[in-house]
């Protein structure tokens, strides 16, 4: 049994060391946890000086219960545009839940009530964010944030600020007429009539393999321990055989 335990230790030590080396060489990463939410932005959206309308969506909280040694955790935020509107500008802010609750949650309410301006909101988000990044337009109007380092945070929230060009947006007026918007019309109508905008936000926490020296040393320890077990078993066998011969 000692010999078999030794063989197991050698196999596990070697396989783990080889896998660590190979997988880190090819840049292996795996999904640790993800969250998906669809923020329906209320109709009281802002109209900026450039004539764009702004939607702010907040993702669900992503809980990372445990971290593993030898993995670097990064966050990717994905959003896409299910409307026909053109996106003028989009940004993602990644915040710890603690900071979001302390500084941003209340500010978002004030922003929706038009008490706080978009610039003030952006400035607060930049100050409190772990990281922020503009989003680049990709296939099917998908926006992929650059990978963001999670640092030591275990609960994170993504805030996505998207500016849409309202040209072509249809509004049902109370008298039954349907108006197709443009920046000029937007300045004249009641903003509460604007239809809600869907902003789906998907947050993925990826773990990228980045083995530490300790891990390689532990693999080596296991191989050595296994070899010792096998050797001690063989030695005791040889001793027994010599004694029997005598």
């Amino acid at each position: 049994m000692l010999r078999v335990l030794g063989i197991i230790a050698i196999v596990i030590g070697l396989v783990t060391a080889l896998l660590l080396a190979y997988l880190s060489y090819i840049g292996f990463s795996t999904l640790a946890v993800s969250a998906y939410s669809v923020g329906i932005v209320p109709p009281a959206v802002h109209v900026t000086e450039r004539g764009t309308i702004v939607a702010v969506a907040v993702s669900d909280t992503v809980y990372l219960r445990g971290r593993v040694e030898g993995y670097r955790y990064t966050v990717s935020v994905f959003t896409y545009n299910p409307t026909r509107l053109t996106v003028e500008r989009a940004e993602t802010y990644l915040l710890s839940k603690k900071d979001f609750d302390a500084y941003v949650r209340g500010m978002l309410v004030a922003f929706r009530a038009a008490v706080v301006s978009l610039d003030e909101l952006r400035s607060t988000l930049r100050k409190t964010a772990l990281d922020y990044s503009p989003m680049h337009s990709r296939w099917r109007m998908e926006y992929i944030a650059e990978e963001l380092d999670m640092r030591r945070e275990n609960e994170v929230i993504a805030v996505v600020v998207v500016e849409y060009n309202p040209t072509g947006m249809t509004i049902d007026l109370p008298n039954g007429t349907i108006v197709v918007t443009n920046p000029t019309i937007l300045r004249t109508i009641n903003l509460s009539l604007l239809p809600p905008i869907e902003v789906p936000v998907r947050v993925h926490v990826f773990a990228r393999l980045d083995p530490s020296l300790d891990q390689y040393l532990r693999c080596l320890d296991l191989v050595v321990a296994g070899a010792l077990l096998v050797a001690s078993d063989l030695l005791s066998r040889m001793k027994l055989r010599a004694r029997t011969r005598r």
Binding site: T16, L19, L20, L23, F28, T30, L31, A32, V33, L64, R65, G66, R67, V68, Y71, Y73, A207, L209
Partner: peptide, 11 residues
């Protein structure tokens, strides 16, 4: 274990 430890640590 090497490839799935992060999700294993979560759940």
């Amino acid at each position: 274990v090497v490839t799935g430890l992060p999700s294993f640590a979560t759940d």
